[in-house]
Write a protein that binds this DNA or RNA. Sequence first.
DNA 1: ATAAACCCTAAAGTTAACATTAGGGTCAAT
DNA 2: ATTGACCCTAATGTTAACTTTAGGGTTTAT
Lengths: 145, 145
Amino acid sequence: MTATLYKIGELAQKADVSVETLRFYETKNLLNAHSRSSAGYRLYSEQDLHQLYFILHAKKVGFSLAEIKQLLGVQVNKQQYTCEDVKHFTEEKIAQIEAKIDDLSKIKLALAQLNKACCGGEESAMHCSILHTLEDPTLFQVKGA
Amino acid sequence: MTATLYKIGELAQKADVSVETLRFYETKNLLNAHSRSSAGYRLYSEQDLHQLYFILHAKKVGFSLAEIKQLLGVQVNKQQYTCEDVKHFTEEKIAQIEAKIDDLSKIKLALAQLNKACCGGEESAMHCSILHTLEDPTLFQVKGA
DNA sequence: ATAAACCCTAAAGTTAACATTAGGGTCAAT
DNA sequence: ATTGACCCTAATGTTAACTTTAGGGTTTAT
């Protein structure tokens, strides 16, 4: 029941990133190794692997490394931030995420209609491009609309 | 009922981007002006505005400009692509989008738990950071898991 | 005991997605 | 008719997120 530790190459392979990326994340203080071997090799824990997965998934949906660092920093019961801080931050981020999900749903719908219109579907002539589907002004409104 | 055309500055303001960004998108063939004035000024149509909105929203959820260009290029009934091409492409992209929505939902859930745990909630001690919530190995699995 | 396959740091290079600079026309109002 | 707020192109600069290079230790299998 001893904790398993991974060398940088092993972690890189598990998460399908390069070892250089992992070292880069360390310089950015996004992912620090759990410890170092006597020879100075980085040793990563299972927890570090979870953190890495989180970073990669958050990146995939459009968060910058700076934003991800912020997300990783939010913690309850750590005196550095007040409870109000955490409340505000999480609420703001949740709203941001909901907006992203909304955008994705619309793009998905547009692609689905395009897919359906394919191969001589009834609506072939109507939805010839993704833009045509998204032309509806009620979709994708921007603040000053 | 004549079509309204916007100068580059007007379009930029409407979509809250810089005019440089718009000219940059043109060099990348992502957004071309509907026409030019006699003086050579770019004139954008309402349709161009929709396309710009699409670009910006797609960018927000993690698509690169190259991917967005692909998305804009998919069209039914244009002889350059076979029906099969369009079917495959849209299905692949839809799956990609669903994965993104999944990731966002998980991050959202983690933030919601953090928010709930805040201010002395029952679970304060349990969910002290976003990572703790995401520690569940059934979340965020990567292929080789 | 040596070679292949790892690991280290530090520094410089790369790519995407813009922003800035330089040098110059255009247009509307005073 | 000139000034300020626009527009143009072309070239160079910037930032984020890596990648590559250079030079050198470590570990493991033969």
